[in-house]
Design a protein around this nucleic acid. Structure first.
Lengths: 231, 231
DNA sequence: CGCCGACTGTCACAGACCTGTCACAGGGCT
DNA sequence: AGCCCTGTGACAGGTCTGTGACAGTCGGCG
């Protein structure tokens, strides 16, 4: 998947000609290499041929829509995806992140803002690829799939580990129960259940110094949970 | 932040030849790339073709005036706009900001001053793109779903947070109780209730330095409330 | 093949916290 | 002054989360 070079190589999938051209121009000027596609099908083909570093993906596409494209990419690929979504519907935001996107940007968007988001996502990717992340006394080794606290190995169950990994992919970002269900369990839940809470609970018991007053996995009332980076 | 971002690309729309040439020269020397247009029509055309990062726009233009250009741009685009206005007329200022401009500068202006304003606006844009907004000592992080005052975490309840988020999405704009009810509570009330007031009051208690004389969440008599950006 | 242990999802429940409502007081506007 | 609007405190009902128990499932191992 793309090289680790200075110039990011992007794939832009957007059906509206004027927006696509405009963004392509703007992003090129910001120093990116850009390939474009007007449909989801073309986009997926280009993806396989060109191996971009990142995909910018419109949600409203003729044929297979952005969410579906997103899911298909995620079945085989790990590369970062930024969704473009129309203003009004905040619901899309949630669905977007649930479908596996790394970030979303609301249209209309100025090239500079999009550029900033792209760089943020790529930076995050680089941090992750260093294979280990540290949160206070907690160290997550992604390649060894181990978690240590104060140097001691923690015995996490598979689900607990997946949950912690997903949280740690987005440090400091609040994730709703819905999002976590999609990311960790791949369910399409509608009703709520205590499932996420229970698992968070078990994870806290192993991860936190004082499970009853957690400092790493914080509760975000009315939303869900968030993994904090201690100052 | 990412200082390796490309050179800002500006579009200057100004009918007076001498001023236009002077500013173009000065801005180029400050390290910007500049395109120029002498009329609103030309400016809009250039905008579509070249996708600048920011527009500097004279208010007094032959044909369609600056305000109108501003509004037209805003219908399709989010990019930052700085207005150039001849008089220090406060009315112009208000109209200008209402028409969607991000800043205004009074002529005659020195290139150095304009440059500073341009950089400030661009910085603001990048900061917003990181999903955090600042109002005085208050910082709202939309992705972490946290609010801090003077660096300290505030414990907002879900409803208070939603209310603050909606207000902060429209800084400086008065929102009626009806609007807030729809945005935050999602019901369609007809009769009035003290519901919004009560929540605003609780929010003020946590957010304001002196809750009894609020400086951030201002009351708009007979209408509703407004979140102000301190000067 | 069957036993066993570990892991996982579900449930019920208690308690903390939040929320909408009301009544009333005080202040601004005409 | 009088009216209308907003600020404020109390309160009861409701919502959300934490927690422990329990049963089903799965895989390993004898």
């Amino acid at each position: 998947m793309g090289q680790n070079v200075a110039v990011p190589f992007l794939l832009l999938i957007e059906d509206d000609d004027s927006i696509r051209t405009a963004l392509e121009l703007s992003l090129s000027r910001q120093g990116h290499k850009v390939a474009t596609a007007a449909t989801g099908e073309d986009g997926l083909k280009l993806l396989r041929e060109q191996r971009p570093d990142l995909i910018v993906l419109d949600v409203m596409l003729p044929g297979i829509d952005g969410f579906e494209v997103c899911r298909r990419i995620r079945r085989t690929d790990q590369l970062p995806i930024i969704l473009l979504t129309a203003r009004s519907d905040d619901i899309d935001v949630v669905v977007g992140l649930e479908s596996g996107a790394d970030d979303y940007v609301v249209k209309p968007v100025q090239g500079r803002v999009l550029d900033a988001r792209i760089r943020a996502v790529l930076r995050r990717g680089e941090r992750e690829s260093t294979d280990s992340a540290t949160f206070g006394s907690l160290v997550i080794d992604r390649s060894a799939m181990t978690v240590t606290k104060n140097g001691e190995d923690l015995q996490l169950t598979p689900t607990e580990l997946r949950l912690l990994l997903e949280l740690s992919r987005r440090p400091g970002q609040a994730l709703s129960r819905q999002q976590l269900l999609r990311l960790v369990w791949e369910h399409d839940y509608l009703g709520d259940s205590r499932l996420v809470d229970a698992c968070v609970q078990r994870l806290r018991a192993k991860v936190e110094d004082v499970p009853s007053s957690p400092t790493l996995i914080r509760t975000v009332r009315g939303v869900g949970y968030r993994l904090d980076v201690p100052a």
